[in-house]
Nucleic acid binder design. Structure first.
Lengths: 337, 337
DNA sequence: TTTTAGCACTCGCATAGGTTGAGTGCTAAA
DNA sequence: TTTAGCACTCAACCTATGCGAGTGCTAAAA
């Protein structure tokens, strides 16, 4: 009985057993260990010959000839596909109760989601804000403060507000502020950030007295967009020290350099296919930097709108079941908010 | 010729030479090495006997009997005192020119100061905002936005503004907002944050209709104070991988745990004596966590007002001369702004 | 054809012994 | 007080050796 992977049921069982075991113990698994824990009714010799085949097929590696087998990237990929296609395995109830006992309100969970994911999964987590394509400016207001300074407020459709004090230009126009507010509203309100940023000539037609003000507002919008786009929050960097693969300083170094490299992270999590909910990248040998690393992330929505991605970075030997269930559960909390 | 350290000039010279050498090479120094590089006119035997005395006095350690000597915490302390008391050694001109060529404007330097310090010194850096004791509230304003929501602005004397949208309570008071603004101004303007936070009963005497609003404003002030107090920005965590003492994962782990522990950092840098400009903490053996670590930090002022501390965290074997000059130079830039 | 027992083989790991060389402490003379 | 000289120590490195875990292969059993 085979499917598209070309693996017999027994080989699948062995492969899953092996990955499972490696995820918990981080040690090469011998044929005897598999027999004892998972398949007591066949001999080690049988398992050995299966292992040899699986190795030939690229699912397993052998650190050296007299060691047990270790899963390859390909094996991890098989393993997570397997989890994903059998949703029943998610232990939702348990995760839910952990979240419920540790965190009082949903509000708290939303605010600290990255931290919580890191805490509950015991891996380093990552919160990434989506592109700003869907953000629009609702209103722009200039508020008079005191002797020549004013406050500019920009209200966007996702509720956040950017403020900044500016110096008002000298002007003898009556009701300068009121007029400015009207102009600003007509120019910016209802527009998407991208539109605004890409249409520099918007201002030219206006009166000269407002040129400087418009310039400042435009810069604020650009700054806001840039800041939002590059925001990645990382939590629990220390967590990796819990895993023996990071007893080697070089691995730690490598890990830190990835985690601190915003561009790299963006590139990894970037989704080409808009429809997938979970993104699981398991590094291959090609990418030196990502070898032996895995990144699991999920899009999350808020009031139906997609706002970002939340995920976990760690060794390939990762507890995918747990990570996936946590991400899923948190995603649900967000969405039902 | 001795001073309060009780060290002869020759011993001082040897001690300085030894620390200097260890700072660059990170290797135990032998009597022969000192002779060659610093004191060719005495024999190694002489130096050896001096080394033995210095070790007895607690300035030096010997990893094992047939190795050279390594500076102790006490030696580092002696070394930095020495630097501090002879300002001439600062290589200000060089630092200045590095800063000038790498960073275009002073504005840029101020904004990214932590990053710059880390870049130029090649150590992990730390930017810490001072206590909020001197911050006062200049003004509080409620601004009507749209259907029942309003924006609260709190302006402080250091220019920053905290804003938040709130829901206005149902009320049939005419000119609710105007009245509220008056009340808020009279209650909060000119007061120091500490005062406000510690006098919860301020509101009770007021009209009931404003109770909720006052509550919200008070919470904003409390949040602001807390947020400001706990802000520590760390830059260049990876830098430590450049130093051989961090080839041991345990040291890395230890380092990371300190760097991520805001409370610990506060405690380390906290100044008891308000008059010192530089704070140099060289960990002793007592504090397990801080052994073999040093933290150098400087207060920095902005327009004459002290606003925070900027510093560097690294191994005790730190290039104190360089670090101190960089911090000093940046401090000057701030102050002359 | 598949499974199994048996056995020789490989190789990492741990331990022990041997050598080398850097650097010391001590002593006795300058 | 300084110096030369020398014996001594010890980490670092290498080699040898045994052990044991785990394999691959083969030939017989199912």
């Amino acid at each position: 009985m085979k499917d598209k992977t070309g693996l017999s049921e027994r080989r699948k069982k062995i492969l899953n057993a092996l990955v499972d075991s490696y995820i918990t113990d981080a040690e090469p698994i011998s044929s005897a260990a598999i027999k004892d824990k998972y398949m007591p009714d066949v001999s080690t010799a049988t398992i050995r010959s299966e292992l040899a085949t699986l190795e030939e097929m690229g699912y397993l590696n052998q650190p050296h000839i007299s060691a047990g087998r270790v899963p390859s990237s390909k094996a991890y990929k098989f393993y997570v596909d397997n989890i994903l296609s059998s949703e029943a395995q998610f232990d939702e109830q348990e995760i839910k109760s952990v979240l419920a006992t540790k965190y009082a309100s949903i509000k708290e969970i939303v605010k600290d989601s990255a931290k919580i994911v890191s805490d509950v999964t015991n891996y380093t987590s990552m919160l990434m804000i989506s592109s700003t394509d869907n953000i629009t400016v609702n209103d722009v207001k200039v508020i008079d403060m005191y002797d020549g300074t004013a406050l500019v407020l920009i209200v966007t459709n996702n509720g956040s507000i950017k403020d900044k004090t500016i110096k008002l230009p000298e002007s003898n126009i009556a009701n300068y502020i009121e007029v400015a507010n009207g102009l600003l509203y007509r120019t910016f309100a209802g527009k998407r950030l991208v539109e605004i940023v890409h249409s520099h000539n918007v201002i030219d037609a206006q009166l000269k007295d407002f040129e400087q003000l418009f310039e400042q507002v435009l810069n604020m919008i650009i700054d806001y967009k840039n800041a939002r786009e590059s925001q990645i929050q990382i939590e629990g960097k220390d967590k990796i020290f819990n895993y023996p693969e990071y007893n080697d300083v070089n691995n730690v170094k490598n890990f830190m350099s990835i985690v601190n490299d915003q561009d790299k992270l963006h590139e990894i999590v970037k989704d080409k296919d808009g429809s997938i909910e979970f993104s699981i990248k398991i590094g291959t040998e090609d990418d030196e930097q990502l070898s032996d690393m895995a990144v699991v992330s999920a899009k999350y929505k808020f009031s139906g709108e997609e706002v970002g991605q939340l995920g976990v970075i760690g060794p390939q030997r990762m507890d995918y079941k747990k990570v996936l269930s946590v991400l899923k559960e948190i995603g649900n909390l967000f969405d039902n908010n």
